[in-house]
Design a protein around this nucleic acid. Structure first.
Length: 281
DNA sequence: CTACAGGCTGGTG
DNA sequence: CACCAGCCTGTA
């Protein structure tokens, strides 16, 4: 167990902010977060967070995964007070953080996300993990906070390839199955690892160029990958909701220059605010 | 039943 | 260039 107190970190909001699809709330009110081949239980009361892992694993993985070293209050306070909508959105979304998710996993998640809804995305990802992922046996599974259900790691590119296109049927992927298979093939073997490594190492512009060459990846999906995995927080994904916000509240254009270098964080506040106040799923 | 999901591809004007 | 039909399918 590892306990920490931190401002601007609300797991429920993070879970509902649309950037991650493998965190869910358990019956006891704690959260189950899965990332790659890891799984963790986290309980939260106010600013207190209790992680079901050793200090070592917290410091080596989860701390950065949840981007805890970043000062989000400072970011919120930099917002133009005259911008009533953005001020309200940031206040409402206080606690959201931009996670640092695994690249391969994030690419697949957002390939699936296109023209899709959140519950279906979650179902598809879970089905994918159940079919092709290795079993996870977390340390805490045998302790007091047991978890009856079986947990699966995110599958490797190699395991996805092994099933071919037929192996992706029945997962609710629809026409996106061929995008997934192509991407799995892309990420296989040494050349695939090299490509992922290159993506991780380069800047925002270069990452966009590389991603946009891939089958099934357009500007919006590429921006999501840049923001939610590579942590290029100047990436500003424009989906139907954000487009509506921009049309409605920023007819003169969003003030990107004022928020240079971290507009993507504000995009999350805007997105979450709009979705939450319109009762969408 | 239809409409719609955090879009992209491929073809047309 | 801009425009847009078609695409899979669970959910509302």
């Amino acid at each position: 167990m590892y306990e920490i107190s931190i401002e601007d970190c609300d797991l429920e909001k993070i879970m509902d902010s649309g950037q991650v699809f493998r965190i869910r709330k358990m019956e006891d009110g704690s959260f189950l977060a899965m990332a790659g081949k890891r799984a963790i239980r986290i309980s939260q009361e106010g600013t207190r967070l209790l992680f079901s892992c050793t200090q070592d694993e917290f410091l080596n993985f989860w701390q950065d995964y949840f981007d805890l070293p970043t000062d989000y209050a400072a970011i919120r306070h930099s917002i133009d007070p005259a911008d009533a909508y953005l001020t309200a959105a940031a206040s409402f979304g206080r606690g959201i953080r931009i996670l640092r998710q695994d690249l391969w996993e994030t690419i697949l998640a957002f390939l699936i996300s296109q023209n899709n809804n959140i519950s279906r995305i979650q179902n598809s990802l879970e089905a994918l993990c159940t079919r092709y992922g290795a079993r996870i046996e977390p340390e805490w599974s045998s302790s007091a906070i047991h978890c009856s259900e079986k947990l699966y790691a995110f599958p490797t590119p190699e395991s996805l390839c092994s099933g071919g296109l037929e192996g992706l049927h029945g997962l609710g992927l629809g026409y996106r199955d061929k995008y997934i298979l192509k991407m799995a093939e892309r990420c296989c073997g040494p050349t695939g690892k090299e490509w992922l490594k290159k993506l991780s190492a380069c800047g925002y512009e270069e990452a966009m160029n590389l991603l946009l060459q891939e089958y099934g990846i357009g500007r919006k999906v590429a921006d999501c990958i840049c923001l939610f995995s590579l942590h290029h927080v100047d990436a500003f994904p424009i989906d139907t909701h954000v487009k509506q916000i921009l049309d409605m509240h920023y007819p003169e254009g969003f003030p990107f220059s004022r928020y240079q270098g971290y507009a993507g964080i504000l995009q999350q506040y805007l997105f979450y605010y709009k979705r939450s106040t319109h009762g969408n799923t």
